[in-house]
Design a protein around this nucleic acid. Structure first.
Length: 122
DNA sequence: AAACTGACGTGAT
DNA sequence: CATCACGCCAGTT
């Protein structure tokens, strides 16, 4: 197979990134959601939201990853509304108790933000 | 190698 | 709020 250009990161790096990213997605608790960019941040790849999207899009059919808990930073499902995957993701999220308001989830309420955990001091 | 694509994000309007 | 434009990144054609 001839490649005309090197990938932006090596295959090994990409495999490692994939593991870190999927491990992070696994940690999103049921009842909460997380943005692509935040997953990237937690996994150690700040600014690479689109890499997270790519990794998820490459998931095999049979997997245990709660991919549905990854949505856009604005609280919307990333798939265009006319795509079947959009309805599937929405149904999965609603089955875990999520409520869409105006086509969006309230990230302030259900957003998983482990980095924000801090001692109850102030 | 340039253009294109997309499961993204953000700021301006 | 809703759109839009533009920036961004990792491929893909």
């Amino acid at each position: 197979m001839i490649r005309t250009r090197q990938p932006c990161i090596s295959a090994a790096e990409r495999a490692a990134a994939r593991q870190k990213i999927l491990a992070t997605v696994q940690q999103i608790p049921k009842g909460q959601v997380c943005s692509y960019s935040y997953v990237a941040l937690i996994a150690g790849f700040p600014g690479r939201a689109r890499l997270v999207a790519k990794i998820l899009s490459d998931l095999p059919l049979a997997h245990q990853i709660p991919w549905q808990r990854v949505i856009t930073a604005s609280g919307r499902i990333a798939f265009p509304g006319d795509q079947p995957a959009h309805a599937i993701q929405r149904a999965l999220l609603e089955s875990e108790g999520q409520v869409f308001v105006g086509g969006k989830l309230r990230m302030a309420d259900v957003g998983w933000r482990p980095m924000d955990e801090r001692p109850l001091l102030d």
